[in-house]
Each structure stands twice: as C-alpha cells, then as structure tokens.
Amino acid sequence: MPSETPQAEVGPTGCPHRSGPHSAKGSLEKGSPEDKEAKEPLWIRPDAPSRCTWQLGRPASESPHHHTAPAKSPKILPDILKKIGDTPMVRINKIGKKFGLKCELLAKCEFFNAGGSVKDRISLRMIEDAERDGTLKPGDTIIEPTSGNTGIGLALAAAVRGYRCIIVMPEKMSSEKVDVLRALGAEIVRTPTNARFDSPESHVGVAWRLKNEIPNSHILDQYRNASNPLAHYDTTADEILQQCDGKLDMLVASVGTGGTITGIARKLKEKCPGCRIIGVDPEGSILAEPEELNQTEQTTYEVEGIGYDFIPTVLDRTVVDKWFKSNDEEAFTFARMLIAQEGLLCGGSAGSTVAVAVKAAQELQEGQRCVVILPDSVRNYMTKFLSDRWMLQKGFLKEEDLTEKKPWWWHLRVQELGLSAPLTVLPTITCGHTIEILREKGFDQAPVVDEAGVILGMVTLGNMLSSLLAGKVQPSDQVGKVIYKQFKQIRLTDTLGRLSHILEMDHFALVV
C-alpha cells in the first residue's frame, strides 16, 4: 500500500459497493488471473465517493441489488447463522422517566444476534452475496479491517462455511474481542490505534497488504460494500417497522461504517417519512454534520465500534436529520445504567446512543415513540467499562463513588512517597548505550525526554532486548525507535489509591 493515498477510480455505471474482489474501477472485475494482476490496485480507499443510485421515491424494481426479506425461524435451526436477525424490541421503562421523557422509549437489542452484535447481519450478508456472485469459493481466505464486531461476525460465518479468516484490528480494541476471535479460529493482526486510516500501518493498510500477498484472499470491505446497508434496509428496518406496527417518530443510532443508519433510515424514509433520524458520533470522530460539531482538541476516545477519521463510502449522511456528539463518560455511564436499571447487557456504544436519545427525544410528546439501536453486548468489555477499576483509572468514576473498604494508605498523596527525580535518556542515544546505562543503574525503564525536557515516551529494558533479539533494531539504532509513546501519567497530588489502580493494569506510571 502506498504512503500517498491515490484516488480510487470510478467506473461508468453500476453501484460502487459490489461485493467481491475490487477492480481499479471499484466494481467486480472478471477475466484471467493475468488481467486481474495487471488491473487490481494495491488498495482502494474506504472513503471513495459513493456511486449508489438510491433515491427517495425511486421504484424498488430499479435497484441493481439482490434483495432479501426477513424469514421466520424454524423450530430447529440448521446452523447458528440462522440465529442472525429477528432481534427483540424491548421497552426501556426507567431511564426515559428518569430523564423526563414523555414518549415511549424502545430498544432494538442487536446483541441477541448469534455473534453478539449488529455486525453479524452485514457479515453474513457480505459472505452470502460474495458466494452468490462467485467471488468467494471453498478454501478462500477472508481478510477484514475491523474494530472487532464485524470480525467476530465474519469469523463466526467463516467457521460454519469453512473459510480461512484473518482479522486486522487496532490495538485499542478489547482483549475479549481478541479472545472470541481466536476461539472462532480467526487469525488476528493488531495495528497502532493512532495510525491514520490511509497510513500503511493502519488496520485498513495492513489488511490490503495481506490481501496482495495471500492468494485467493478477499477483503469484503464493510466500508464500501453495498451488502452492509442492504442488510439493514432489507431486514433490520423491516423488523423495526413490523415490531412497531409502522408507528415510530424517531430513530437514534450510533454511527461507525454508517451501514446501520443508512440502511434503516432509507427504508424508514420510504415507509415512515415523518420519522426523524438521529445520528450519534463520538467526540474525536469526524462523521457528524455540520462540520463545526467535529471541532475539538480530542483525537482519541475509548468507546469502541463507532466514529472514524474518514467518511466511509457506505455512509449516506443525507438521510440523517440531526447529529449529536457523545463523550466517553456519558457513554459508559449510560451503558452501566442500562445494565443495572433495565437488565440490558449492552456495550458502550449503546450507552452513547441512549445518552443522546434522552436529549433528542425531549421534543417528542406522549403517545409518540423513539427507537434506539443497541449494537453489541457487554461480553466484549468485561475488563473495560464493566470494571470499576478501569473506570477509575480512566477518570470516568471517582473514588467516592465506590463504597468498598480501602487499605490505610489509600488516600495518601503520591508526594508522600518522597520520590527522587528519575533517570532520563535522550532519544538520540543508541539502544546499546541505553541498555548499558539501565543495567549500570539497576533500572528496568526510563523516560525519554528531548533537550527541552519534554517527555516523549518510555523505554524499557525488556522491550529493547526483545527488539534486538527479533532483529527489529540494532544496538547502533537510536533509542527513539523503541519508545512507548502511550503511558499513564500521575500527579504528586493524586492518591496512592489512584496509582494502585493504574499499576494493576500497566507496568509503570510516570509522575509529573
């Protein structure tokens, strides 16, 4: 994948999101292997301009796509893939009243899908469409860049269908997702969380590099694949309309690839034109409109599966009536509230959605109805927002919020430890010299600072030695090549209790 991002070429006709291997024109390309080798690009942008032909009021008969309808489940399912879809609609009884809503608040519980998330729908649909058009064949390999849930859905379907599955996901995604993927037989590649989507090191860039190296491999490409919004247009939206008897006044959905909100909203605009569509985008993402909503100094966020630093091709923002931004604290607070007060075992993005819903639905009156999409299960986040310690460490809970008995030293300040200034190293000294210094002084790690004293990161003896043994660096290389740029900081005025929580999850903390 090139470091400079080429513009994806656009073909003359058809839909841009065809499933299957992508040609340089962004659509299915038939021909000899030699032709494909000559024409197939190194990668295709996940934010390529959409060429979708959908228009409100256009006859369904003019759609270029294969459409399906929700099917009634048999008493005995032939395999677990038949437990994807037909998820329950559940009334939220307490939270709406707590925040003064007059309307009825309903939750579409997508964590009841077989793999635990709304992404099971698009995973199965992308595979079925690729099999139907002859792209996927027995023994082929599926590769997908994902925040985890699409990966789980694909790995689940691949396990049943017999495909090899490789999932490329950023490091910030939970260990629970990784464990589930491994249990399903998927191979996992992790990428830096802070890598831009168009960087060769991003999950998108690495996935395309693997595709170019592995024979008979395919990126189904949830960011561009029409099967993504079509899955929701054909099934999720129809289920909502049936469950609500066609009567709903507002739908609120958090947005990642945009397939969920695009597919549902398009069908609702056709069948229930008075329904307002509300999009939820986390602070630090750029999906919301108008652009002024996205202006923030924050560039990272903890909530998973929603928000991006690019506009995915499948996201149709014209069908969203209003956007709201959400933050991590309210997302996790509301997710825990949904679990504790409503018994809905949902993930953090569901918290984002409901946090926005109780604001947006203030305009609705008694007798009206708001539906929220709860995308995934708490299963993926047992060591994250479900953990009091994690919430404390991230600053989303305060010590006084917890009532468990603490040891005698818990409320003492870090400054009472009488710490001395640490050994520091410059980023320009060599790895070999740094190892000598650390061994001589008896230290395992040291902060790396520039000549102005600005902290650049941390270097550890173990990481340097393993990097040297693996051949990633040489003793003569500058130590700046092996620094940890993500590390926890703590102030002298913070409590030892807070430091204790940090050290339970990290090997060190830097006192500043």
Rank of each mutant, 00 (worst) to 15 (best):
I142H: 01
H203K: 04
V10W: 08
K269L: 05
E62M: 13
S227M: 09
D79C: 11
E187T: 15
Q243G: 01
E239V: 04
N194V: 01
G96I: 15
W43Y: 12
Q55M: 15
H218V: 15
E187A: 01
K94G: 11
E131N: 14
I76Y: 08
A48V: 10
A130T: 07
C275I: 13
V255A: 06
R182P: 05
L268T: 12
E104W: 03
L77D: 01
S147N: 01
A107S: 06
P170I: 01
Y163W: 01
V168T: 05
I166F: 07
G100E: 09
P88V: 06
E37D: 10
P215F: 12
G246Y: 01
P273A: 06
L181D: 01
G274C: 01
K271Q: 09
S123N: 15
D133A: 06
Q55N: 13
N113R: 04
A155V: 06
H218R: 11
H22P: 01
K30C: 05
L56W: 01
I76M: 15
G258M: 01
A226G: 07
E176S: 09
E176C: 03
G151L: 03
C109V: 15
D234F: 07
A114H: 10
K75T: 04
K97E: 13
A207Q: 01
Q55C: 14
S61Y: 10
P21T: 10
E171F: 01
A114W: 07
S202V: 01
S174T: 05
N216G: 05
L181H: 06
H65T: 01
G205P: 09
N113H: 10
D179K: 04
S3M: 09
A207G: 03
A186Y: 01
K211D: 01
P138V: 07
E110R: 01
K97W: 01
A253N: 08
A71C: 01
V180N: 01
D221L: 06
I261L: 07
Y233K: 01
L230C: 15
K72T: 05
A207L: 01
G85Y: 03
P6M: 15
S50M: 05
H66Q: 15
K25D: 15
S254R: 06
A24W: 05
A158V: 15
L230H: 15
I214K: 03
P200E: 06
E213M: 14
S61V: 04
S227L: 04
P59C: 14
K75V: 13
P88G: 01
H218P: 04
G14D: 10
D120R: 01
I143L: 07
A237I: 01
T5V: 01
L210C: 07
P6W: 05
A183C: 13
S254Q: 14
G185C: 01
R91S: 14
K271S: 12
K271W: 06
L56G: 01
R164D: 01
P2N: 14
G259T: 01
T5N: 15
G258T: 01
R196I: 09
H22S: 06
R161C: 13
S27T: 12
T13R: 01
C272S: 13
M173V: 05
K39P: 15
E34A: 08
S217N: 13
A237V: 13
F197S: 08
T262A: 12
S19Y: 07
S175G: 06
V10L: 12
A69L: 01
K97A: 01
P74W: 04
P170K: 14
T193C: 06
Q242V: 09
A231L: 07
E9Y: 01
A207W: 01
L77H: 04
R276D: 03
L220H: 01
N93V: 01
P200T: 08
S63C: 11
C244G: 04
N225P: 01
E144L: 04
K172C: 05
D198N: 13
C15R: 06
R58S: 05
G20F: 09
A183Q: 14
V255Y: 01
T135H: 04
A157F: 01
S50L: 07
R58L: 08
S50R: 01
G246S: 08
N93Y: 06
P46K: 01
S63M: 08
K102C: 07
R45V: 07
T141N: 08
R132V: 01
S3V: 14
M250V: 01
H66C: 11
I261M: 12
P16K: 15
H203W: 06
F111Q: 04
I152E: 05
N216C: 11
N225I: 06
I44L: 08
P46V: 07
P64A: 13
K72W: 01
R209F: 06
H22F: 12
L251K: 01
P6T: 01
Y223C: 11
P33L: 07
T235C: 12
N225W: 01
A71V: 12
I143K: 01
T87W: 01
S174W: 01
P170A: 01
H65L: 01
R18I: 15
S27F: 06
P273L: 13
P273Y: 01
G274I: 09
D79A: 04
T191L: 04
L105R: 11
C275G: 06
E9L: 01
R182D: 05
E4M: 04
N212T: 11
G139D: 01
G256V: 01
E110F: 04
R58C: 06
I264H: 07
K75S: 12
L81E: 15
